[in-house]
Write a protein that binds this DNA or RNA. Structure first.
Length: 483
DNA sequence: TCTGGGGTCCTAGGACCC
DNA sequence: TCTGGGGTCCTAGGACCC
């Protein structure tokens, strides 16, 4: 049996908004919210300045705007976030190769390979050196938790936020967790917490006391067993560098509910395209096609079919998704549709039987497809593809073109240079001209279709450039995210 | 206030097989 | 004629996480 490892949990602070403040000097020290900016958008990340007003992740953006009208509301720029994430993870892998990235801004590090049994002081030095390297090389702040398991590391990176470090010495796990709320345990959400509360359990220590059997009776076999072990500070989960994907999916929420089957079919088509594109990029095929629908009352339905052979063919996936949609009652309107493929494997097999079935159950005829005002689409053409020897007519599926300019978007102007979209509407777009290493920039407004204005790639923050005191909200001690 | 999009894991019931 | 248990696969829904 393996000795207890030392595990770090690395978590970037308010990651999306931190990148925005890094790239947009005028937003440093100000409330910033990244998320959906449309009527049904929700908050992905609120900067610490916005959290003061009660803005939180997963809150409807409309609610956030009421609480904090003066914040900058920006759509996400995933390309920029991914780039920063890669830089951070590369720095972390210099500490240990045994790194498990769990999301764009989070990773577990097992120190064992390079440091088999480090002292508390050594772990502290490694973690603080990594935090310093991340700040100096990327301009971002990270929090780190350390302990003998993923559980205590994760809980303590959270407690260390923002821009901090927290360590639980070996042997002190259970005592450290005991006074905490059960909600501190990852996996205990509102429903589980309510169940436990109904039985008088609100702290981790109390959860440990009630015993495994009662835990299982309350929460089910798997969840109950694991949660009781967690409450005792026991977590045997290992850090693994790679994990195989189990499913690939895409979904979209409409600005207003949709009842028209033709339009729903058009969306299913585009979603299918996105899913199969990603399957093919990753060299994956899947046997189960899943259609997801959310109704006007927010209830969610899923319908699935499992094929004899795995597929990555958009024609095949779309045909099954269409059939699943056709069997659904949409008369009350849907607010969301999604398409997914699961039961993934690494290879593709020709879909012979599926082609035969197609002759018996023809796909519904494509209906005319108009679109919501917010997603006006260019004219759809038609293409034909060869499938199993017969020619099938397939509706061409152009991506919906969103509004031309999105808040936060990077742009270049032929005369004024690089900047970002502050807002747009009524035929105009407002741009602030600044970059990571300029002072806060000036605002100019242009016609929406100004030929001198074009989308631009994300800017890059570089440690080699000195911003100078005027624009420098980031260097030095705490960074821009405190408070 | 009215709820995104990408995932993972678990449960439960029914079909089917031995 | 009535009654078994276990295992696997499939489908649907729900909790949870970032």
């Amino acid at each position: 049996m393996r000795a207890r490892p030392v595990i770090l949990h690395l978590d970037l602070d308010a990651f999306f908004t931190a990148v925005e403040q890094l790239h947009k000097p005028s937003l440093r020290g100000k409330p910033v919210v990244v998320g959906g900016v449309g009527g049904r958008g929700v908050v992905s990340t609120a900067s610490y300045e916005a959290r003061v007003f009660g803005v939180r992740s997963a809150m409807p953006t409309a609610d956030a705007r009421r609480r904090c009208p003066n914040a900058a509301y920006l759509g996400p720029r995933f390309e920029a976030y991914r780039h920063c994430s890669v830089q951070v993870m590369d720095l972390a892998r210099e500490v240990t190769p045994l790194l498990e990235q769990v999301s764009i801004d989070e990773a577990y590090l097992d120190l064992t390979p390079a440091h088999p049994s480090p002292t508390v002081d050594e772990v502290t030095a490694l973690a603080e050196d990594l935090r310093t390297a991340i700040r100096e090389r990327t301009g971002l702040t990270a929090s780190i938790g350390a302990g003998t398991s993923k559980l205590v590391a994760k809980i303590h990176s959270d407690l260390a936020k923002p821009d901090g470090f927290a360590l639980v010495p070996p042997g002190e796990e259970a005592a450290t967790l005991a006074p905490m709320s059960v909600r501190a345990i990852p996996g205990v959400g509102p429903a589980t917490a309510a169940r436990l509360a109904a039985h008088g359990v609100s702290t981790v220590g109390r959860l440990a006391e009630i015993g495994a059997d009662e835990c299982v009776a309350l929460l089910g076999r798997a969840h109950g067993t694991q949660l009781h072990a967690f409450a005792l500070g026991v977590d045997p989960r290992e850090v693994v560098t790679e994990r195989a994907a189990k499913s690939v999916s895409a979904e979209t929420t409409f600005p207003t509910d949709v009842t028209d089957r033709g339009r729903l079919g058009g969306h299913v088509s585009r979603l299918t395209e996105r899913v199969t594109d990603r399957l093919r990029t990753d060299g994956l095929s899947g046997r189960t096609v899943v259609l997801k629908a959310r109704r006007h009352d927010f209830s969610t339905l899923t319908r699935s079919t499992t094929l004899d052979q795995p597929t990555d063919d958009p024609v095949v996936v779309r045909r099954h998704a269409d059939r699943l949609l056709a069997a659904l009652d949409v008369s009350d309107g849907l607010r969301l549709v999604g398409v997914g493929v699961s039961g993934l494997s690494l290879y593709t097999q020709p879909d012979l039987l599926d082609g035969l079935l197609d002759d018996v159950l023809p796909a519904p005829a494509p209906e005319p497809d108009e679109d919501d005002e917010e997603f006006a689409r260019p004219d759809a053409g038609e293409v034909t593809t060869e499938e199993n020897g017969s020619t099938v007519l397939v509706e061409a599926v152009p991506e919906p073109t969103g509004p031309r300019w999105r808040p936060g978007q990077d742009v270049a102007h032929s005369e004024h240079g690089l900047g970002w979209v502050q807002g747009s509407g009524v035929g105009r777009v407002t741009v602030r001209f600044e970059g990571p290493h300029t002072p806060p920039g000036r605002i100019r407004t242009f016609p929406e279709d100004d030929p001198d204005l074009a989308p631009a790639p994300p800017p890059e923050w570089s440690p080699l450039v000195d911003d100078g005191p005027a624009a420098d909200g980031l260097s030095g001690g705490g960074g821009s995210l405190d408070g």
